[in-house]
Amino acid sequence: MSMRLTRRSLVGATALVAAPALLAPRPARAQGWPNGPIRLVVPFAPGGSTDLSARLVADGLAQRLGVPVVVENRAGAGATTGSQMVADAPPDGQTLVMSNIASHAISPTLYGNLRYDPVRSFTHIAMVITNPSVWVVHPRSEIANLADLVRLAKTRQGGLDMASSGAGSSNHLLMVRFCEQAGIPFTHVPFRGAGPAMTAVIANQVPMMSDSLPSAAGHIRQGSVRAIAMSSAQRHPGFPGVPTFIEQGFDLSSTSWFALSGPAGMDPGVVQRLNREVKAVVATPDSQRRFAEMGGAPGDMTPEEFTAFVAAEVARWAPVVRASGATVG
C-alpha cells in the first residue's frame, strides 16, 4: 500500500486553539454543579468500545449526580470531530468527551490541520478502561490465523481489505505495523465507528477487522465472528483460546484506552468531584463484571496522572505514525 509520510507539527495546532484569557468563559464552580443535564460526547458511532464504555459511565454518573447524563455520538475524522466540539465548549462541567487513544494520542499527528492540542485544549479528568485489540473474521472465513491471513494477502492484488473504526485509530495503525512486518499490502477500509465495521464483517462484506476487545467480545462469544489474534502481551484470561500476535511470530502488542475529559479551564473542584465519581462508578461490582465481560480493565488515575499519561501517549505514538507513513487523505 502506498503511503505518504506525515510531517506536520503539533505546535501549529496548539497555536490555532490558543485564545486570549479575557475571552475564555468562566468555569462553573464546584458548589452548585451540576446545574442541569450533562452532555457526554462520544466521537465515534454507536456500538463501539468508546460508546459502550461511555454509556456504562453515563448511567453510573447519572445515578450518583442526580442529573441526566446524555450520550451524544459525533463521529468523524478519526474521532476529532466530536473532540473539537468539546474543546470549543464552555468549561462549565456540563459538556464532556469520551477521550481515547485515537482522538488524543494518534490523530494529533495523523491530522496536520487539527485545531486542538490534545493536552492543553482539554481538562483531563479520569481514566475509565484499558483493553487490547482483537482481529476478527467471518466464522466461515478460510482465515484461521495470521499465517493464513498473510498467505491469502499475497495472492490478491492490493492485498486484503481490512476494516477498522476509522482512519487514525489504534486499530488502523496496528494493521499498518502488522503488514509492514509481514511484508504484505493491504487496503484500509475505515468506517465511522466499530459498530458499522463489525456489521460489515458479520455480513461477510469485508474479510476482517481490527477492533477493540470490548466492542468485539459479545460477537466473539455469540459466534458471529471468529477471533484470530489478540494484541495483548499474554493471552487474555477471558479469551484463552485466542493466541497473541507475539505467539504467532509478530513482535506486536497494543493497548487502547478510553477516558473522561472536558474543555480546558474547568474548575478544579468540579474535576476532583468527577474523578471521584468515575472511580466510584467503575469500582462497583456491576461495572467490574461488565468490564470483565467486555475484556477490559478499569482505570485508576488522578487528573494529574491522566494528564501526564496523555502527554506521554502523544509522544509515544507520534514517531509510530510518522515512521509508518500513514496519513489521512
Results as ranks from 00 to 15, higher is better:
247 E>F: 10
193 G>N: 12
278 V>M: 00
252 L>W: 11
274 L>Y: 05
229 A>H: 08
241 G>N: 09
274 L>C: 05
275 N>H: 04
198 M>K: 14
210 S>G: 14
212 S>N: 12
199 T>A: 15
185 P>M: 08
239 F>S: 14
273 R>A: 11
201 V>N: 08
192 R>P: 15
234 Q>H: 07
256 S>I: 00
274 L>K: 05
241 G>W: 00
248 Q>P: 15
254 S>L: 11
257 W>C: 00
272 Q>G: 10
222 Q>R: 15
228 I>S: 05
236 H>L: 05
211 D>A: 08
205 Q>P: 00
223 G>E: 09
227 A>W: 01
187 T>R: 15
260 L>Q: 01
186 F>C: 11
204 N>D: 13
192 R>L: 15
204 N>E: 10
206 V>A: 08
233 A>E: 14
227 A>F: 04
277 E>T: 13
208 M>Q: 12
272 Q>Y: 03
231 S>T: 08
219 H>Y: 14
250 F>P: 15
208 M>W: 07
186 F>E: 08
236 H>K: 11
206 V>C: 05
190 P>G: 04
208 M>I: 14
220 I>P: 13
221 R>V: 12
261 S>H: 04
228 I>K: 03
218 G>H: 15
204 N>S: 07
226 R>Y: 00
245 F>G: 10
201 V>E: 11
202 I>E: 15
234 Q>S: 10
273 R>K: 08
213 L>P: 14
205 Q>V: 03
221 R>P: 14
219 H>C: 10
206 V>D: 08
235 R>Q: 13
224 S>N: 05
278 V>I: 00
264 A>Y: 12
274 L>E: 01
217 A>S: 15
216 A>E: 01
240 P>Y: 02
236 H>W: 11
191 F>P: 14
206 V>G: 04
219 H>G: 07
185 P>G: 06
204 N>M: 10
262 G>C: 06
217 A>L: 12
260 L>N: 05
231 S>L: 02
240 P>W: 02
230 M>K: 12
249 G>A: 07
224 S>Q: 11
258 F>G: 05
262 G>S: 06
257 W>G: 00
210 S>D: 14
218 G>D: 12
192 R>Y: 09
192 R>S: 15
202 I>Y: 08
239 F>C: 13
255 T>N: 02
227 A>T: 13
263 P>E: 11
216 A>H: 04
229 A>K: 04
215 S>L: 00
234 Q>C: 07
225 V>C: 07
243 P>E: 05
222 Q>Y: 13
272 Q>V: 01
251 D>C: 03
225 V>W: 01
193 G>C: 13
209 M>W: 05
197 A>V: 02
225 V>T: 11
190 P>D: 07
251 D>A: 09
214 P>H: 00
205 Q>K: 09
193 G>P: 15
253 S>I: 07
194 A>P: 14
244 T>A: 05
220 I>D: 10
267 D>H: 08
237 P>E: 01
197 A>D: 07
205 Q>A: 09
222 Q>W: 13
209 M>N: 11
205 Q>F: 09
215 S>T: 01
272 Q>A: 13
203 A>Y: 01
193 G>K: 02
213 L>G: 08
218 G>R: 15
188 H>C: 09
196 P>L: 04
238 G>C: 12
232 S>Y: 04
272 Q>C: 09
272 Q>E: 10
217 A>P: 13
215 S>P: 15
211 D>N: 10
271 V>D: 06
